[in-house]
Write a protein that binds this DNA or RNA. Sequence first.
RNA 1: GGGGCUGUAGCUCAGUUGGCAGAGCGGUACGUUCGCAAUGUACAGGCCAGGGGUUCAAUUCCCCUCAGCUCCA
Length: 872
Amino acid sequence: MAAEIRTANELRKAFTGFFEQRGHTKVESASLIPHDPTILFTVAGMVPFKPYFVGDEVAPYKRAVSVQKCARAGGKHNDLDDVGRTKRHCVFFEMLGNFSFGDYFKTDAIPWSWELVTEVFGFDGDQLWITVHESDDEAEQIWHDQVGVPMNRIQRLGDADNFWQMGETGPCGPCSEIHIDRGPSFGPDGGPLNDPKGDRFLEFWNLVFMQFNQDKDGSRTALPKPSIDTGAGLERILALKQGKDSIWETDVLFPLIEQAQSATSTKYLIGDYEDKSSFSLRVLAEHARSATMLVNDGVFPSNEGRGYVLRRIFRRAVRHAYLLGTDKLVMPKLVETAVEIMQEAHPTLKTNKDFILGVLTKEEESFRQTLKNGLNLLENEFSAIKTSKKKSTLSGKSAFVLHDTYGFPLELTQEIAGERNINVDITEFETEMHAQRTRAKAARKGAASADETLAQYRQLLDTHGQTKFVGYESDSCTAKVLSLVALDDSSVEVFLDVTPFYAESGGQVGDRGTIRCPSGEIKVTDTVFALPGLRKHIGVLSGEIVAGVEVTATIDVNLRNSTRKNHTATHILHYALRKVLGDHVKQAGSLVSAERLRFDFSHYAPLSNVEIEQIERIANAQVLTNSDVKNYETSKEKATQAGAIAFFGDKYGDMVRVLEAGDSIELCGGTHAAATGDIGLIKIVEEGSIGSNLRRIEAVTGQNAVDYVISTARTIQKLNELLDTNSAALVESMSRKIAEVKELNDELKSLRSAAARGRAAEFVSKNKGGVVVQRVDGLSPSDLRELALAIRASKEIKAVVLGGVTSTGGVALVAATGAGVSTPAGDLISQAAKMVGGGGGGKGDIATAGGKNAAALDEALLAAAQASSKIV
RNA sequence: GGGGCUGUAGCUCAGUUGGCAGAGCGGUACGUUCGCAAUGUACAGGCCAGGGGUUCAAUUCCCCUCAGCUCCA
């Protein structure tokens, strides 16, 4: 009997300790961001081990135990809106699990789970019920004969409850679950079979027996080496151990509820699932913890992918804080509490704390701004409704626009509308929402294609194995053509048994070069992975090459060398970025070509010029050391010990390739320079945003960097010559020049208007009954207008019409009317404008017009004079 | 990946059948009354995001680019 378990930390230790004693390797929790591209988050304890179960990789250990961070939100099971309503649902949770990779099976797994539950956890065996799959006699027998559970507490359930499948195909098998009877006050007797909702008979342990392989045709074959995957929710067991009715009162969540209470001055009612405020507090507690854990693993709030899911989770929480009437920021305090609760089990929280706080504080601020803007728009809608026919209904369309375009949640729209006795047309809203979904799905469908070629590739891989890559050591080799497929008239896909061509991965572009034999040649334009391990050369064939012949494969060495420099420089830049900006900088993508390198990374603000300069200094200092670049294979453990950081999104087997360039140590399978000095020079040429919290830098190296510096210097030299200055004084000289131009412009403007005013007196004196109509050539349209305004300024003038040929050869007309004249100024010149072949007008007491036909100007002015005389 | 919205003074934003740009706050200067605050007057501050097109004329209409916001996948 182990020590009494009181806290989450004690539970985690007791659990892993139990299985470590039984030969299991303790595996640290993997990131919430999975390597598996088909899922958004790590959703179960087995996710990190999936390659071992599927057989893609060989497990480095036969038995493992873990406490895995998990998150479930978005994706297929979109139950985000339910979190907080129930006693047990969370976005973030931890899963206890023990695993066997083709090692022990039911006869060990079942008794161990019983021993753990009764002796370590201390549950009363008489209160436990077991369910097995209806076909699984073996499991039932073990539970009964070996463990001693009476038959009346073992029940059989169907596929829906007790059968597990990874996907359409692949490993699958029956499950067995352990339930605890919480007593008559929670519902009627009769075991889990009689309690589908699990109110009284609470399921807390699930054992999956992976013993079959599901084929495409629906048949199942037995796996030669069956495996075990178990899972139990930490929070659930904690609630049971701590004698609480729900997970909300356990020590991993209740401190957050207490913090939420004080931050919002709201009272929490334990066990009340009807009370709206208590619901909001639970949402705040849960989402604060989830968001904290997600940011800790490198998820950033953004408008796509998992970042978007995080944003939705987080904003849902802020929305509830808002509903509770809090207008101060609440999340920073909750995040601090979450860090405090979780940091012992997840130590990276300590080092990342300031960063997490920064990201989430900023996110709350920005969302509160969104809410404020939305509120204004909503007010406008309300006042529009008052004057409309339907006085008491806000259209679903409006509610949708508010939500879709401005991010104002429907729930808040309804809440606020409700306060004013206004309905929201939900049906219409749903219709709009549905249309939006359909659009997005239709767009997605276009992208899916061609499974057939994939099957061909797989067959190639099955018969010949992986393509041997010799490109680290040599630029050329002889090889055998395994397959050659013509794509269209000229381009072909070629597969070799061995190749020096690097296939695009880790951001590095594929090699180019030639594949030739006596009878023909292929100019290779790109090399990619058709499947993991299978390298595909794409190129143009001249002459004849067929499958089976021997060829010489040679890469374009110049291109490869430039690419090498850029790739090594990418690592050094990554190092420098982390040094200057912080360890939260994570690679989000990269492109390494011969010409330049592009590096996308997570960061929350634009880089300042000073920061870019620092980065360049640090990076180039690494270049100047001219230290040897080491590129070697080693075990994963040794690499991590050396402090290597893994590139995001890459998948690594047990043996990994490590790259050491200067002080940068990373896992990387690319091709690299021999020494940092080979890079020559790293120059950042661009920095920008590619989405919220995502930045991109572009840089050049080697000859390209030299070219860049020379051309920049040339530009500066030219400027120096133009301004007759030198580089040191250029900036000052230029700013002085700009100020001067501005000053001169202002002066010119005031002189012009003074001149116009001066001439105005002359024109005023020529007025006939308060009307001035004159031709003035050589002025710009705006000067002409200025003049007209100056003339009109005299009290006796009632109307002015000026016309003239402008300096650019067009005709300009302007009309202005004095105070007390009701005829619009435009009327005075509308006809004249037509006569000069233009149009025009204006409104009120000043109008301008123009045309092209200068010959008709005098005639046009006569017409204008006539129009003007009518109004006086 | 697919939609929607926005970009105007240091900040928050106005600006309709296209006619040379405004408000409030902030800033500066000079006053007034006085409680390190209020208030009056004046002034400065704009390639109306950038580039093309239509037009006699584009902040306004059309196209493209860039940036930001937002929803869906």
